[in-house]
Design a protein around this nucleic acid. Structure first.
Length: 200
DNA sequence: CCCGCGATTCGCT
DNA sequence: GCGAATCGCGGGA
C-alpha cells in the first residue's frame, strides 16, 4: 500500500528513519517507473541538530521545504554536483527530514543503468545519496513535491527488518556538527550490498 | 560583495 | 588513497 500522509506526521524523526528501512521508494517520469526498497537512511533532527540545514531555526530559500508539513520531498544540491533526496516529516513548522542514502533496486534496472551511465550494473548504482537521486531521476525540479503524487511515492509491501538486522551508527560526512556528529542517527540493513559505507 | 566550504562521487595513481 | 569537479549557501565585511 502507498504510505498515507499520516505516516509522515510522526514527530520522532529518528524512529521514522529506522522505520523507513524496507519501505519501497518509486519514481515515475514519462511513464517509466524505477525504484526499490530503502536500505540506508539518516535522520536530521530539525532546529536542535547541528548537522541539520535547519539548525538554529535557519529559514532560507533552500531550507523552507524542510518547514513544510511532512510527506514531501526535500531535494537540494551538494558540492555543486550531486542532488540529495530527503523525506520531510513532522508537522508544518517543524523542520525534520530523512536523507535516503541507499536503496536496493527492484524495478527499472535498465533505466537506472542508463541514467547512471554505467556499462555494467554494479551495487554502486544506488549506493550513496547522490547515486540514489541520479538513478531515480530525482533533481531539484521536484523539490517540495508531494509523496502522494504519481511522480514520487513510498509503499509498504510488508518487508521489514528486526533490530538484529539493522545497524544504528553515527552519520556520514557531518564532522562539522561537533557533539551531534556522534549521534547514532544513521540506519542501515546489515550485509546489504547497496549500503554505501558498511564499515563505519 | 567576497570567499570558504559542503548530508559526495568518480577517475587516476 | 587522493584530489578535482562545480555552484549556491551563508556568514562576515
Amino acid at each position: 500500500m502507498i504510505l498515507p500522509e499520516s505516516y509522515y506526521l510522526n514527530n520522532d524523526v529518528v524512529a521514522l528513519s529506522r522505520d523507513l528501512l524496507g519501505k519501497y521508494l518509486f519514481t515515475r517520469f514519462d511513464g517509466q517507473i524505477t525504484g526499490g526498497y530503502i536500505v540506508e537512511t539518516e535522520a536530521y533532527n530539525g532546529v536542535v541538530d547541528k548537522a541539520s540545514h535547519a539548525y538554529g531555526n535557519r529559514l532560507t530559500h533552500r531550507t523552507q521545504t524542510m518547514y513544510m508539513q511532512g510527506g514531501v520531498a526535500y531535494v537540494y544540491l551538494c558540492y555543486g554536483i550531486h542532488e540529495m533526496l530527503n523525506i520531510v516529516s513532522s508537522v508544518e513548522g517543524r523542520p525534520q527530514a530523512i536523507l535516503i542514502r541507499a536503496i536496493n533496486p527492484t524495478v527499472g534496472l535498465d533505466i537506472m543503468q542508463y541514467r547512471r551511465n554505467m556499462a555494467v550494473i554494479k551495487p554502486t548504482i544506488t549506493s550513496g545519496p547522490g547515486s540514489v537521486a541520479k538513478a531515480l531521476g530525482i533533481s531539484r525540479k521536484i523539490n517540495a513535491i508531494s509523496l502522494q503524487s504519481d511522480t514520487l511515492w513510498l509503499e509498504d509491501q510488508g518487508l521489514s527488518f528486526t533490530d538484529d538486522e539493522v545497524a544504528a551508527v553515527p552519520r556520514v560526512g557531518v564532522d562539522y556538527a561537533g557533539d551531534d556528529a556522534l549521534l547514532p542517527y544513521r540506519f542501515y540493513v546489515k550485509g546489504n550490498k547497496f549500503v554505501s559505507k558498511p564499515n563505519k
